[in-house]
């Protein structure tokens, strides 16, 4: 099933200091962090990005600091899915653990104008800019990742087994 939102493009090696600068880390909830998301890259992002939008980045998204505040801030903005050619390991785990959807599409995606409509079919790992006519195919997540997502995050899974 396709869901659409505005697509916003970012480059390679967007580190977590850019996604959530240190000065906002005294906050610890998605709601409190959302106004500062991506402000280390450009302070206008939080006002630009609307719930349901899609971030489309290059390689090594989320490298650097392990701060979970980075995916929390993106989740707080209501981002539907973050697509990247590759994610850094810690960011990837953090996002999965808090239930922020990520899609790894190794092939370079042609950059569209900022704010173009992007369609996501998350269960099938697909991205499109023309309602599914041309699709970009993601790498299926590992079984453990699907299991965590199915529980709505890591802690609900851990608590259900306690």
């Amino acid at each position: 099933m396709w869901t659409e939102g505005h697509g916003w493009f970012l480059g390679d090696d967007i580190d977590t200091d850019q996604i959530m600068p240190t000065r906002y880390l005294a906050h610890s909830t998605a709601e409190d962090l959302a106004p500062f998301a991506l402000s280390g890259n450009d302070t206008s992002w939080a006002a630009t990005i609307k719930p349901g939008d899609v971030l489309i980045a290059g390689k090594n998204f989320g490298c650097g600091s392990s701060r979970e505040h980075a995916p929390l801030g993106l989740k707080g903005l209501g981002i539907q899915c973050v697509v990247a050619q590759s994610f850094s390991r810690i960011f990837y785990r953090n996002a999965v653990n808090i239930g922020l959807a990520l899609l790894t599409i190794p092939k370079a995606i042609p950059v569209q104008p900022q704010g173009s409509t992007a369609w996501i079919d998350f269960p099938n790992g697909l991205l499109s800019f023309d309602a599914g006519v041309t699709t970009y195919v993601g790498v299926p997540p590992a079984p453990i990742v699907l299991e965590i997502l199915a529980h709505g995050g890591l802690m609900p899974m851990v608590a259900s087994r306690a």
Binding site: S66, R67, E68, I90, F91, R93, N94, N97, I98, G153, L154, M155, V158
Partner: peptide, 10 residues
């Protein structure tokens, strides 16, 4: 290795 806050909670 390093991990984030939720992994450490688990």
């Amino acid at each position: 290795t390093g991990m984030g806050s939720t992994d450490i909670a688990a």
